Simulated scan of single mutants.
Amino acid sequence: MTSLENNIVDKPATDPVDQLILERGLRIKQLFFSVEMDRMLILLTNGNVLNLRLSQYERLKNATSVQLLQYSLIGNGIAVSWDELDEDLSLKGFIKQAALTNAVRQLEVAV
């Protein structure tokens, strides 16, 4: 490992989402899908669930239930891969999308 790699590895995360994943060990435990309801539920190792629309993801929105179930967790749960769909999505991206969706929903209620 080069000294540059050591600096990257030893540097603490400054992004709060990176801190959750890299320093506190948050991971994806399991995924659940409802094509009919346009939903993907992401069960996390801390017991929380992210609730996202399949239609937010171009390659997932037209996938069958069987294709959606053919996923594998990458990096012990920091990402998900669907080989048949040629799609890889990260836990960080899921968290940011869920936060954005919730923020927009709150703004809509306030108006």
Rank of each mutant, 00 (worst) to 15 (best):
R53I: 01
S34E: 08
F32G: 12
E36S: 07
I28T: 00
Q56L: 10
G47F: 03
I28G: 00
E23Q: 15
G47D: 11
I21C: 02
N48S: 14
R24L: 11
N48Y: 14
N46W: 04
L54Q: 11
F32S: 14
I28E: 00
N46R: 14
D38Y: 07
R53M: 14
I21Y: 06
Q30I: 11
E23S: 10
R59T: 05
R59D: 09
L60D: 03
L43D: 13
V35S: 00
F33T: 05
L52W: 12
I21S: 00
Q30T: 15
G25N: 02
Y57H: 14
E36T: 03
F33E: 08
L22K: 09
D38L: 11
G47K: 10
L54R: 03
F33G: 03
E23N: 12
G25R: 02
G47A: 06
R59K: 15
I42R: 01
T45C: 15
K29T: 03
M40P: 00
V49T: 14
D38S: 11
N46K: 09
S55H: 12
M37T: 04
I28K: 00
L60T: 02
L31H: 02
N51V: 01
L26C: 05
L54N: 05
K29H: 07
R39L: 15
K29Q: 13
S55P: 08
V49F: 06
G25K: 09
G47R: 08
M40Q: 06
N48C: 13
L22M: 09
E58D: 14
